[in-house]
Simulated assay, not measured.
Amino acid sequence: MTIAGVSQKFNVSQDTLRYYERIGLIPRVNRNKSGMRDYTEDDCKWVEFIKCMRGAGLPIEVLIEYVGLFQQGDETIDVRKELLIEQRKQLITRMEDMKKTLERLDYKIARYEQTVVGKEKTLRRPED
């Protein structure tokens, strides 16, 4: 698949895909005879994985480390697992913080809605 096709499929810019490859977030993509990137199904799985992990807030440095460990082979399985467990813990903490923020926003919005309703009542004429 071409870089344009991968870009469209995963809604990631071509520049981002090139950057991810350059910094080692996705393994080197093979090139066709014309020198154009030719993404395989495995390459696309890496793009999907990285996009998912970035969307969850995992740092680029952690993902570069993970990809590097993956490329070293099965002897790094335990290290990779621990890395993912640690990132999971951090994600849970961020989610809990976000839940608290959401609750606070809901509270503030409700307060504004009460204020607006209260003002509407005081603006009406007594005969309404």
Rank of each mutant, 00 (worst) to 15 (best):
N32H: 03
L17D: 07
D43M: 11
V29L: 02
D43W: 04
A4K: 05
Y19S: 03
E41F: 13
Y66A: 06
G118S: 11
I26Q: 00
E21C: 06
L58M: 10
V117R: 15
T16D: 03
E48C: 00
E65D: 02
M1I: 10
R22K: 13
W46H: 01
Y112K: 06
E96L: 11
Y39S: 04
P59F: 08
I60C: 07
N30W: 09
R31F: 05
I77P: 12
T101Q: 09
R22W: 03
P126D: 15
F10G: 02
D43Y: 09
Q72R: 15
M53A: 03
V79H: 07
D15K: 05
E41K: 09
T76Q: 02
T76D: 12
R94Q: 03
L83R: 01
G24A: 06
E113D: 12
E75S: 14
E120N: 14
D78T: 10
E75D: 13
I64P: 06
M1R: 01
E103H: 02
L69G: 04
Y39L: 01
T76Y: 11
L91F: 02
G68Y: 13
A110W: 13
E113F: 08
M53W: 01
V117C: 14
G24Y: 04
T76V: 00
T115P: 07
C52E: 05
A4H: 07
Q114N: 12
E120W: 11
M36D: 02
I109W: 01
P59W: 10
R37M: 00
